[in-house]
Design a protein around this nucleic acid. Structure first.
Lengths: 225, 225
DNA sequence: TAGATTGTTAATCGATTAACAATC
DNA sequence: TAGATTGTTAATCGATTAACAATC
């Protein structure tokens, strides 16, 4: 009964963002031939709270064993299933520049149940060439190919100027989710899933925190307000 | 009095992650020669709530004008200052693979007050070459150069196996903040700032949401629990 | 059994949203 | 002035953390 795969319920985003971290750790432990792992140990390794780990894991539906912890393989499976990484999610990528290239070349991406089937660009010199085993096709073919190959995911690694147009093309072809690396807010119908992966967001957090730390080390007494 | 730059106070992360979005929009509006922008308009354009926008902006210390909104230039400055993007943050990058290359080649990165001064790799064939105007140096030089050039930020784009060692080298040289793209949890002293930018986190959210949507479209009646 | 660990219900905390007064 | 918009205080919501019972 527990073995049958349940349909995936919507999980909180903070939890989802921790799942890949758990999987990284489990992968390492698997190599060391460990069979059971306690929430405590996971928490220690990843700098989290063990209660949080248990709460997170319980959302995948897994049931742990008192005194032992969680079966490593079963936990791995549960996490994969929750992330939908036990499927192959086929995607088209648009924008074969250096970022697009990096994503296409990302070794582990297939471990995430993700497969870029084809890439598109409007640079004639790139069209027809093959990067990382992926053929570069002209953008004119994009919409039709989404329809005919029934692709659900689009990756946008174009410059900001063209990102919105590409998104529109993708949506008109029937794309359901867009992984957007271009530094623009895409306007899309609300049934379309957008996941933004802009470097600037992450960088901003870093530089801000650094500024805070540096300022507090400087000798100026903080003005109490 | 309002003009003098205040030391940056620590801001909530969700707010920080929205700041670059605001800046993207402001940049566009600047081109259209707009002088004032209302929180309402920002909210509409970015799919946010206007109260949230006002709350966010107030944290930068800016004061808006009733009936008009916020002065575009002043707001831009305030956001830049809060993110510490009105400084040049110098960084060293380690791992001159395709991801490292993409980051080095990222055009807008200097607009984020960020500058990669040098890159390091352990592949002898790369050392001495120049990628995107950045010289590739041997990793042996890393720690010493961090010390002598007084670099605060390290970017890790190595494979997962070497990431922790590189982090250790960086920290021993005096790096204060690490932008980590390798799929590992880095163990560092608590005064070191780590900002993780792993693709897997973002991808996991995307594929999960897609699974939820697809399942709910399938004809199976959801099992009420 | 005692002890370690899970799983759940309740309390806390922080971010978002609502309500409304202040300002031009 | 009336109306639009800001800015702040209070209410709500959701995620994290604490407390503790259940299990092997």
């Amino acid at each position: 009964m527990e073995i049958r795969k349940e349909p995936v319920k919507a999980l909180p985003e903070p939890t989802l963002r921790r799942f890949p971290k758990y999987l990284q750790l489990l992968k390492r432990l698997k190599i060391e031939n460990i069979r059971y792992i306690a929430s405590n140990m996971i928490a220690d390794e990843l700098g989290l709270d063990s209660i949080q780990v248990r709460k997170d894991l319980s959302l995948t539906g897994i049931i742990g064993k008192p005194k032992l912890g969680f079966d490593l393989d079963e936990l791995t499976q549960s996490l994969f299933h929750s992330l939908n990484w036990d499927n192959i999610n086929e995607a088209f990528l648009v924008g074969a520049g250096s970022l697009g290239n990096a994503i296409m070349g990302y070794k582990n991406i297939s471990a995430y149940g993700f497969k870029i089937i084809a890439a598109f660009d409007n640079d004639a010199s790139k069209i027809g060439s093959i990067m990382n085993n992926i053929e570069i096709l002209p953008i004119e073919n994009l919409t039709d190919m989404i329809v005919s190959m029934n692709i659900n995911i689009g990756v946008i690694t174009t410059p900001e100027e063209t990102a919105q147009q590409i998104a529109n093309l993708m949506i008109s072809g029937g794309i359901k989710a867009i992984w957007n690396f271009a530094p623009v807010h895409l306007k899309v119908p609300e049934n379309i899933i957008i996941e933004n992966a802009q470097l600037s967001q992450s960088l901003g957090v870093l530089t801000h925190k650094l500024a805070v730390v540096m300022k507090s080390h400087s000798s100026l007494p903080a003005k109490e307000n």
